[in-house]
Design a protein around this nucleic acid. Sequence first.
DNA 1: GTCTATAGAAGGATAGAC
DNA 2: GTCTATCCTTCTATAGAC
Lengths: 203, 203
Amino acid sequence: MEGNDKLTEDKIFEAATTVFEEQGMTGARMQNIADRAGINKALLHYYFRTKDQLFDAVFSKLAQKMFQKFSPIFEENLSLEDKIRFFIKEHINFLKENPKLPGFIIHEINRNPQRIKKMLRNVDFKILWSAILKHHSDELGDYNITEENLPQIMTTIVSLTVFPFAARGLIEVIFSNVGVDFDKYIEERKEFAAEFVIKAIKK
Amino acid sequence: MEGNDKLTEDKIFEAATTVFEEQGMTGARMQNIADRAGINKALLHYYFRTKDQLFDAVFSKLAQKMFQKFSPIFEENLSLEDKIRFFIKEHINFLKENPKLPGFIIHEINRNPQRIKKMLRNVDFKILWSAILKHHSDELGDYNITEENLPQIMTTIVSLTVFPFAARGLIEVIFSNVGVDFDKYIEERKEFAAEFVIKAIKK
DNA sequence: GTCTATAGAAGGATAGAC
DNA sequence: GTCTATCCTTCTATAGAC
């Protein structure tokens, strides 16, 4: 049964994604994943052999999903300002649908930096980064952006969107104390972060 | 032997801090902690009874250490701009000495949000936050800071300092590819982040 | 207070029936 | 392809000698 086959594997993969995102590799339990998928432990091993291989599959998929969301930076045909607005808005929308992703990726990379090193070994960021400068070369006169400070600016933009989700558990406790709703805060952040960055880099 | 007693407990606590920061609660092994402390497993239980209690002690200490570093925001007698410069610089210096702290706190809070909720139950952030506005009330005319957008601004500043350390494993891989040194980037970030924020909030 | 030895529980993995 | 039963390793925790 090819159809049912794919279905079971998908159910396992989905359940594993949920559990790994919440508990991390070391905190996840095969029994927990099996229960969530509505099957038994033995089937997990039938499809993925070991916990390690199951985790690898989930991690690779999620990391890839995350990296794909950065492609608009290098492609969309927009002015620099509109590109910043577009990227931040789309990235926050993506994170709203995958709120556990930042914490998961951060934790697993810290636990095993080699994994991501291997995944990115044949990506040339140098070419990608200089492509940004080239793409907007006619606008750069209006902004404080150079090859020198590009690392600062790039990490700054990503910080603004990712950190609130990574530290959500802490932020929500503080916000609830001052009467701020996290979802409303995130919605407002799309415009706030974009205009914040644009104002800061403008000459 | 009171003296030696304290020494052993401290050795255990230090070893546990290192291991928990690196592996998290679920990834840490009592054997590993014992080895690092240069004693045997049984002694861990003699001093801290269970892994859970040992972890609680370490987590509480680290979380407290982290929160204390935010106090300059509410105390230092500086102009708004100088306070931002001072806080970012001091906070980055602190994180340089505790680079694993952000990832650890983020992961453990996500895994168990209740723990931090309990720790902060008797802190009134509302009073602290309005104190900032009051303290700089004479300067606020020059900046786009209101009670409304304070949550955005506060989380933005913290994002800029904390995120690079949390995502260090990933950032370092990308940086090594484009020929940027992480330590140099962090050193430059003190000034970059401060001036970035100041420029963005100035009217 | 510190050690060795070991109990006891949990969790990953497999065998074998259907 | 899916299940039940079980093995075996790993890990937390304790007993008991010194």
